[in-house]
Design a protein around this nucleic acid. Structure first.
Length: 847
RNA sequence: GGGUGAGUAGUCCAAUUGGUAGAGACAAAGGACUUAAAAUCCUUCCAGUGAGGGUUCGAGUCCCUCCUCACCUACCA
């Protein structure tokens, strides 16, 4: 046979064939186990980037592998298709967010098709379509009725020119990103999800996530930020209106060391004082003008204002001043702190600055550590910190001033967005009935397909047809809620909907039971906190609304967080970033292809638009075909590590494709030979060695796939391929039969990574069924064992000799030959000990 | 400041989980083929595992200290 490798032809051919034969429809075979393989669905920006490429290739390898291993595999894809970019694009192009989004979906779907991914497209969903979001509206109403959704006043970033609410990332240096107007802080009525109600469960269940990366679990834990402490009230002197100040502390043991209190600038006490105290008002204003960016916070000086109010120590009755302090957060705890300068670094700095007393109450060298015995603490003297915490809490509880509590950093989730392109919140504002949910049978509250997006503020609010309705309760004229939902809501349950995308109900309980939890969820580390936390929350909330089975506590069994795709960036003398496609190498230096200018090379960093260091996957496919690109993506780096993109590595994979192709197409050996010899039927060393390589490769590839060590499977297949390439038509018949067996095996093993070339070769070898319907090869145990091993002989841990011995060598015999081999090295020494590791080595300890 | 992870040939990466540091690839050099080049094939070269200490018969792997880098998080009381 002599046929040239033409990836473009065969890839298109097989993609068409898989589609026509519906090869990746989710199967439901009885007696097969189910496997749910999911990659994070993309935002349809219109273009595939290398991050997607990596994500979906990894997922596809797993899905195809599981399918070959006899699982019913659910491997769906869809679109996270609401969100601001569509509105921005509509504004820019004077077109429609919907049309733009749908066109992008089609464009990206075409790109995905070129990658040769094994999706069940019948389950495709798009969050911007009402057959998806209507169900989200339905359970949102249920959650409202269960108290998991509520409205409250909350601070937002308000752009006074565009008359719109801005997300934090749209505020740049305190100004609106588009209007450039100074952003105002404004209280607005907003919708919230009561995620804090689940804080404890979300925190506890992290321990169930055995197959999640540790660091993601840490991030989740830190984000939830559970702490135990004491919340209690000080009596306040100096005011007729304020009688007490409630504080939260994680260090109740230091209560006796309190010498002042500090409150946030937004604290009611601060506001109270500001009414009559101009200096206090000024100070509060100053605090609020301070930016909230990380840099501002880092550089800001810690400042305070001493108020005329004092707290009364609950045990000693002493009075201490209350300060308004610019570093106290209203959002955490009670917005007020009992300050213990002897044992808290920040309080210490503050006390020194304002000349406040410092009272040490714990012995020991490290004042900020939490160990030691209490001193200067009256009745608590002599207690260890842990005991003292309990004692103080008990004391304060006994006095009726407060109680031991648990506190979380986690805040309730504000989901209101004053924008058009999102899921409408299905509520109506009625003058007489208030906030009323839309009746379920009237869902969906449909987002207008076309809308005047150029109006200031939320376009929905200007759409009379959308806004004006009747009250579901009393029938009177009423107005719809015009807020839409945070897109994180859309992505917090899509994985459930995939199990039953055509169901008339929110979810089909049986299907959810069948497929959930997701067996492997693959995505970028950037979603380690919010998306995963919200998804975990919504899964639990849906369970409590009866939509999912009670036993489904966590949505994702195994989480794979892929690393970023990184590349160096290039800059010319003007500082402009030059894309790698325009860079050539001359004398080891990067130069601009057109101008010839030598470019500055920056360090490796994530491919991004701003650094113009990304490569366009479409170009790669055009040049190398999907199989080579997929292989390179898998081969270059382990899944969870950053992938340093180089064209050279891709070229290497391209060359490998050619060599692999030649195993079938430039050999005289008969590949239709189906005779498979067992290891003990083989005669020569070479035959046995090749047999072993074949079966060891099966084992290695299989084991590595099970461990998600995907880069090494490519290396193993290359090794097998290299070994096979050495076989000649002049070799023995058995050798030639082994060649056929080996090539067949290699094709099967390589299929999850490079599905097109393997299908083609499989067919060319005379097979009539698709590889997608072929079982994974099984390693023959007998062929995994060597009959000879290299026995390493060490003296005092240092390598001295290597001996070829029988694999079944006995301990005594091994030690005997080893000692003989190192006679010279042990001469005149006393042999103290001989260590024997079966099948590996003998270590002689001699002094 | 806190947390997490990672440092192995010139480069990307392996190493049976405490047992010969090298599987695979890139790059480089030489050779074969070619009128020539590309492609292809063959051959060769290169580290003692970031530094130091410890445990052990034996450490890339475990423990401690330090350095560098990356990511996350941050006035969280």
């Amino acid at each position: 046979m002599n046929k040239r490798y033409n990836p473009f032809e065969i890839e298109a051919k097989w993609q068409k064939s898989w589609e026509e034969n519906n090869n990746f429809a989710t199967t439901n075979d009885e007696g097969k186990e189910n496997f749910y393989c999911l990659e994070m669905f993309p935002y349809p920006s219109g273009k595939l980037h290398t991050g997607h490429l990596r994500n979906y290739t990894i997922g596809d390898v797993i899905a195809r592998y599981k399918k070959a291993n006899g699982f019913n595999v659910l491997h769906p894809m869809g679109w996270d298709s609401f969100g601001m970019p569509a509105e921005n694009a509509a504004l820019k192009n004077n077109s429609s967010a919907r049309k733009w989004t749908l066109a992008n979906i089609e464009a990206m779907k075409a790109d995905l098709r070129i990658m040769g991914l094994s999706y069940d497209w019948d389950r495709e969903l798009a969050t911007c379509k009402d057959d998806y979001y209507r169900h989200q509206q339905a359970f949102f109403i249920d959650m409202y009725e269960k108290g998991l959704v509520y409205k409250k006043e909350a601070m937002v970033n308000w752009d006074p020119v565009d008359m719109t609410v801005l997300a934090n990332e749209q505020v740049i240096d305190g100004k609106g990103w588009r209007s450039d107007a100074p952003v105002e802080r404004k209280m607005m009525n907003q919708w919230f999800m009561n995620i804090t109600k689940y804080a404890d469960e979300l925190n506890d269940d992290i321990k169930l996530l055995e197959d999640w990366p540790e660091r993601v679990k840490h991030m989740q834990t830190n984000w939830i930020g559970k702490s135990k402490g004491l919340q209690f009230k000080f009596k306040v002197n100096g005011s007729s209106d304020v009688e007490e100040l409630e504080v939260y502390t994680t260090r109740p043991d230091t209560l006796m060391g309190v010498t002042f209190a500090s409150v946030a600038s937004e604290h009611p006490i601060a506001k109270e004082i500001a009414k009559t105290d101009a200096k206090a008002a000024d100070f509060i204003k100053e605090c609020q003008e301070l930016g909230t960016s990380a840099v501002d916070i880092e550089t800001a000086e810690k400042k305070g204002y001493k108020t005329p109010y004092t707290i009364v120590h609950p045990i000693t009755g002493e009075e201490f001043p209350i300060y308004i302090a610019n570093f106290v957060l209203m959002a955490y705890g009670t917005g007020a702190v009992m300050a213990v300068p002897a044992h808290d670094e920040r309080d210490n700095d503050f006390a020194k600055k304002y000349d406040i007393a410092i009272k040490q109450v714990i012995e020991g060298e490290d004042p900020y550590g939490a160990a030691g015995k209490l001193i200067n603490s009256a009745e608590f003297d002599g207690l260890e910190v842990a005991e003292a915490k309990k004692a103080v809490i008990a004391k304060i509880e006994g006095m009726g001033l407060g109680e031991g509590t648990t506190n979380y950093k986690l805040r309730d989730w504000g989901i209101s967005r004053q924008r058009y392109w999102g899921t409408p919140i299905p509520f109506v504002e009625c003058e007489s009935c208030g906030t009323v949910p839309v009746k379920k049978e009237d869902l969906p509250v449909k987002l207008p397909d076309e809308i005047d997006i150029t109006v200031k503020g939320n376009p929905l609010a200007s759409d009379a047809e959308f806004v004006n309705t009747t009250c579901p309760n009393c029938g009177a004229a009423a107005k719809r809620t015009t807020d839409t939902m945070d897109t994180f809501m859309d992505s917090s349950w899509y994985f459930l909907r995939y199990t039953c995308p055509h169901s008339e109900n929110v979810l089909d309980l049986e299907e959810v039971k069948k497929w959930m939890p997701v067996d492997t969820y693959i995505g970028g580390i950037e979603h380690a906190i919010l998306h995963l936390l919200y998804s975990r929350f919504i899964t639990k909330a849906l369970r409590d609304c009866g939509y999912t089975p009670a036993e489904l506590v966590e949505p994702f069994k195994r989480l794979i967080t892929q690393g970023m795709v990184i590349a160096p960036s290039f800059q010319d003398s003007k500082g402009d970033y030059i894309n790698p496609v325009d860079v050539a190498e001359e004398d080891g230096k990067p130069v601009h292809k057109e101008t010839g200018e030598v470019l500055k090379v920056n360090r490796m960093e994530k491919m991004s638009k701003s650094k113009n260091n990304g490569v366009d996957p479409a170009i790669l496919f055009e040049q190398y075909g999907a199989d080579a690109v997929r292989t390179a993506i898998i081969f270059i780096a382990p899944v969870e590590k950053d992938l340093e993109w180089t064209e050279n590595a891709l070229e290497g994979c391209w060359r490998f494709m050619g060599r692999f192709w030649n195993l079938v197409h430039s050999t005289e050996i008969d590949l239709s030979n189906e005779k498979v010899y067992a290891i003990d039927e083989l005669d020569t060393k070479e035959e046995k060695a090749l047999k072993r390589i074949i079966h060891k490769t099966i084992k290695r590839v299989t084991d590595d796939l099970d461990k998600f060590q995907l880069n090494t499977i490519v290396a193993a297949i290359m090794e097998l391929s290299n070994a096979l390439a050495k076989v000649k038509v002049t070799d023995s018949d058995k050798m030639q039969a082994l060649y056929a067996e080996g090539v067949k095996t290699a094709v099967q093993l390589f299929n999850p990574v490079a599905p097109h070339i393997t299908e083609e070769l499989w067919t060319d070898m005379g097979n009539t069924t698709s590889l997608t319907a072929t079982d994974w090869p099984q390693a023959q145990e007998a062929a995994l064992e060597d009959d000879e091993i290299t026995l390493v002989v060490q003296v005092n841990g240092k390598l001295k000799a290597k001996l070829q011995v029988s694999a079944s060598i006995a301990k005594d015999e091994a030690e005997k030959v080893a000692l003989e081999a190192v006679v010279k090295d042990t001469e005149g020494k006393e042999i103290k000990k001989v260590i024997y590791v079966p099948g590996r080595l003998v270590n002689v300890v001699a002094v």
